[in-house]
Design a protein around this nucleic acid. Structure first.
Lengths: 150, 150
DNA sequence: GTCGGTGCAAATGCTTTGCATTGAT
DNA sequence: ATCAATGCAAAGCATTTGCACCGAC
């Protein structure tokens, strides 16, 4: 149980909260109700989100969590490889769930400000090759596409 | 002279400062020495840069420019399509020259924090197709690749 | 001569941090 | 019981803005 190295298939089947709990323990952190609720809210949102949206979703669910804890937990979730921080606009950070799946690209409509995560087959291979060509190992990627409607 | 729509080949041959001056005039702005010097410094840096690096380069060249003007001019250069704002880390923005060429991807060594712009043939086509599939027109893109050495 | 630009210092707003209290293990 | 986590309010810090003076057109 709880192998140090887990395959992606294992990852997909294991509940995310269990993954988070294990990663926290490995790093000497505690698994608190606040942290559980934050991850839960992120899973429910199932989209790109910012800190304020997340905090509001928590409040709406009857669980007020302080801004400080939200930010501290987001960092932990990032360190655990569960979420990825996007930097779409410099005003505020947004995050997306990435654990157990290929990070999606982000499509930004510059005319409507609509933000949509999309799958882009072939992107991973492109990045992997770019790294391999330089003797490096791909650790992550972030693609923002800016587009406009006709 | 000074066509409203210019081809890429024209763009490459025309000095960037002339492009900037023209775009400023079109938008009812003035072409000031500070703005000229800022663009000049950016061209000389010829790499990814942040606001502080840019301001220091200007000072080193004997031309002090205020932080406020640096930021205001960066926004104008961005609106003119001459530079692109990157958001590599949430601490501070960085920019790169993009006028007349395909924006380069950014390779970030997570072990050394080294940041290198790279060309990634095929990326443009990938993004263009993703937009076309959704009836959109590609306006820009930003790819950050995180990698580590062995 | 007109407006827009510049520099300074103050303001802004997201994110982080210090500290006393609370709670997971 | 211990040591980390929480919440609050205050601090940080890159970036923006108000305002008086200056300068491109």
């Amino acid at each position: 149980m709880a192998p140090d190295q887990e395959s992606v298939s294992t990852a997909i089947q294991e509940p995310l909260c269990a993954v988070f709990r294990r990663r926290l323990k490995q790093a000497g952190h505690k698994y608190t109700p606040e942290r559980a609720r934050i991850l839960d809210a992120i899973i429910r949102i199932d989209d790109i989100f910012d800190a304020e949206t997340l905090q509001r979703a928590l409040s709406a669910g009857g669980h007020d969590v302080s801004k400080a804890t939200v930010y501290r937990t987001l960092k932990l979730l990032q360190d655990a490889g569960i979420i990825q921080q996007l930097m779409i606009d410099p005003e505020q950070s947004r995050w997306q769930l990435v654990y157990g799946r290929s990070p999606r690209a982000v499509l930004i409509r510059v005319d409507t400000d609509e933000i949509t995560p999309i799958d882009l087959p072939g992107l991973d291979e492109l990045c992997r090759r770019a790294c391999a060509d330089r003797g490096l190992r791909l650790e992550g990627r972030r693609l923002h596409i800016f587009a406009t409607g006709d």
